[in-house]
């Protein structure tokens, strides 16, 4: 049997993807920091950092539709941003989470720094492996905990609709981060510290288990024609893509990554050593069944 060879992905393309993402994330975090600073120095008329939270738009949607007013701390910019998030999810699934969300970027940065330390300490790597080996129940628990996002979503939007107050705000780590200049020890601040602390050990803990905005996007994103797609003919059967995914999606087990947890970060694409194994694709209806090795086909090929 002759050996099968597939083209190798150029390291340059992987670097392009990663650097583009980190550049966008850094720019957004810097902009948010500037917004917090400008509000903290009490510039007259300065925009409240909370005005740039898309989830505020979802929280006030019911009140806005029924009364024409927004709940406290929410402005029309929040409604506009909520609309933009809906459009983004319909077009690009979890793109907002993976590329734009500042809280996700901060969690990712902390996890990256923690990894940089543990990768250089053999005893830490061994300890990590031992913990994973002795916790076979963790994947099941992780799976169940991920439904927490939907619980928070229902509570936050339902609570705001019923009471006219943003009930989630008191626990929202993002709100605590925006109010960091006030040095107030609140419940939200404690949640923020817990999230940042957990980020040392778990990839994006808030995104996985509690983010209501991620839940909204995951659900709406199901309708998106864009998705990461795997081509079995070029797949090496390794698990590099799985290991690269910050949301622990088993990319090598599926044809199209339509998981509601996908944040569109393209880490799996950048990590894959095979050039044609994983790519972003747009689907369109086809009369004939198509084999996914035929990226870029209109007519399709009978299986």
């Amino acid at each position: 049997m002759s050996a099968t060879f597939v083209p190798r992905r150029s390291p340059r393309s992987a670097r392009q993807i990663r650097w583009s993402r980190h550049l966008v994330q850094t720019a957004i975090v810097a902009w948010v920091a500037w917004t917090i600073w400008s509000k903290a120095v009490a510039a007259p008329g300065a925009a409240s950092p909370e005005a740039f939270c898309p989830f505020g738009g979802f929280e006030t949607a019911f009140t806005w539709i029924t009364t024409g007013a927004t709940v406290a701390h929410v402005h029309t910019a929040n409604l506009v941003l909520a609309g933009i998030v809906v459009v983004l999810a319909l077009v690009g699934r979890g793109f907002f989470c993976g590329w734009l969300c500042p809280l996700g970027s901060i969690q990712e940065a902390i996890r990256g720094m923690a990894r940089a330390v543990t990768d250089r300490a053999p005893w830490m790597r061994r300890t990590g492996r031992a913990i994973r080996a002795n916790a076979p129940w963790w994947p099941r628990v992780d799976h169940i905990l991920r439904y927490g996002r939907y619980v928070v979503l229902v509570w936050a939007i339902g609570g705001a609709a019923v009471t006219g107050v943003m009930v989630f705000r008191e626990f929202d780590p993002w709100n605590a981060l925006l109010s960091i200049a006030e040095f107030e020890i609140s419940t939200a601040f404690v949640v923020l510290i817990a999230v940042l602390g957990l980020s040392v050990f778990v990839d994006r803990p808030f995104c996985r288990y509690a983010c209501p905005l991620g839940a909204v996007q995951g659900l709406i994103g199901k309708a998106s024609p864009l998705a990461i797609q795997r081509n079995a003919d070029a797949c090496l059967g390794c698990t590099i893509c799985n290991n690269a995914c910050p949301m622990n999606i088993e990319v090598n087990q599926v044809t199209r990554v339509t998981d509601t947890n996908c944040i569109g970060c393209l880490e799996c694409v950048a990590a894959c050593p095979s050039q044609n194994a994983i790519a972003v694709t747009v689907t369109f209806p086809s009369r004939l069944p198509v084999h996914t090795s035929d990226f870029d086909t209109k007519e399709g090929v009978l299986l």
Partner: peptide
Amino acid sequence: THTKHGNR
């Protein structure tokens, strides 16, 4: 991998 959709 299998899909019934065309893709680009």
